[in-house]
Amino acid sequence: MENERRTARWGAAGLEWFSLPLLVLVWYLLAVVVDHRLFPTPVTVVRELWELALHRSLIADVGKTLARAAIAFVTAMGLGIVLGALLGRLRSVDRLFGSWIIIGLNIPAIVVAITCYIWLGLTEFALILAVVVNKTPLVTVTMREGVRALDQGYGELAQVYRVPFWRRMRLFVLPQLMPYVLTAARTGLSLIWKIVLVFEVLGSDGGVGFRIGIFFQNFDIAGILSYTVAFMTVVIFLEYAVMRRLEAKVLGWRPAFQSR
C-alpha cells in the first residue's frame, strides 16, 4: 500500500518535472514551424539572454524590479493582513469600510498608477505606492474571509485552558489563517509582478518593464522574450524554493496536502 502510494507520488513528481521541458519543446517546435524572425526559438532567446546578462543591464534590471516587487509585496501583505483581520473580526468596521474595499478591488490599476505619478511625480515611491494600493484590497478580502472562517471551537478550547493571547495567536489562530495567508501571497505575487512591469513601462528609470518598453519600440522580440524568460526563471525559483517549501511546512498537516 505504502509502496503504491510512493510510486504514485514519484509518478506525479515526474510529470511535474517534465512539465517545463515540455513547454520549451512546444515553443521550439512552434518556432520551427512558424519560422519567422518575430517568433524566435528558445535557443535564440537563451543566447540573447546570455548576451544581455553578460554585457548589458539585464541583471540590474531584474534586481530593480524584484526590489520594487518585494517592497510592495511585503507592505501590501502587512497592511492587508491587519485590515483583513479588523474587517473580519469587527462587524461595524466591515460595514463602514467594506465598500471601500470593493472600490479598491475594482478600480483599474492603470488609473491608480497614473494618478500616483501625477500627484507624486515619476518616483520610486509613487510606483511602489500604486502597486500597494492595487494589491492591498485583494489581501484584505482574503484575510477577512480567513478570520471569518476561524473555528470558534478552538477559541473555546483556548478559553477553557486559559491559553495566553500570543500563545493562542501562535498555536490556535495562525495555523487556521495560514492557508489564507498563502493564498493571498501566491495571488499577490503573480499580480504584483504584472502590475510592477506595467507601471515600469509607464514611467521609471529602469527595471524589466522599462527595458521591455524600449525593446517594444525597437520591435526586438528576442530581447522581450529574454527578459521575460529571466523574470519567469526567478518566479519559478521562488515558487519551488520558497512558496512550496513554506506550504509544506505550514500546511503539511492537511489531508489534502498529504495526498499530493
Binding site: G153, E156, L157, V160, Y161, L171, F172, P175, W253, R254
Partner: peptide, 12 residues
Amino acid sequence: FVFQDPRLLPWQ
C-alpha cells in the same frame, strides 16, 4: 474539559 467532539488541533 473534554468536549463532545475531540476538538484536537489538527496541525499539532
